[in-house]
Amino acid sequence: MLIGKTDRVEFCGTMKYSVEINGAKRTVDIDGETPLLWVLRDTLDLKGTKFGCGAAQCGACTVHMNGHPIRACQTPIASVGDARITTIEAIGDSKVGKHVQEAWIELDVPQCGYCQAGQIMSATALLTRNPAPTDHDINVAMSGNVCRCATYTRIRAAIKHAAKAGSI
């Protein structure tokens, strides 16, 4: 006989969670352990937030919770509560987010582009808190986001570009 029965221990079980995503209340009926990432992607059809590692090691799933960058792959939906969640789809609604997106376009940052939603979320959080970041500030804020194509040179330049745009 094998272990691994079906009487698994449930933390929460399926229930209704009402969460604020990009300014709108969304209700999902789902197991509370489900990471926000999969609620966004599979349940709410917001596919801009990406899956890269499932272990908070790559940053591809970065979203904002009350303006702070968090990894959606390690955020159980049950823990979201009434926090404000912002994703790449709506980050351009903020002035800083818009500047960051424009800088990314202006400097032609992406190669494959897969990590860039997460990079933009981290960069926007940084510039919102710190409008004129130093290289060290950029290193600290951006080192949780892996770019496999290694477009770091341009990401750094684009953050500085967006900072300049923000200061005008």
Binding site: T87, W104, I105, Q116, A117
Partner: peptide, 18 residues
């Protein structure tokens, strides 16, 4: 400039996983 970038930076579904 890569014409795909505006879609990339706004999180449009465009990858295999999407």
């Amino acid at each position: 400039r890569n014409l795909e970038v505006p879609r990339i930076v706004t999180g449009q579904p465009m990858f295999g996983i999407d």
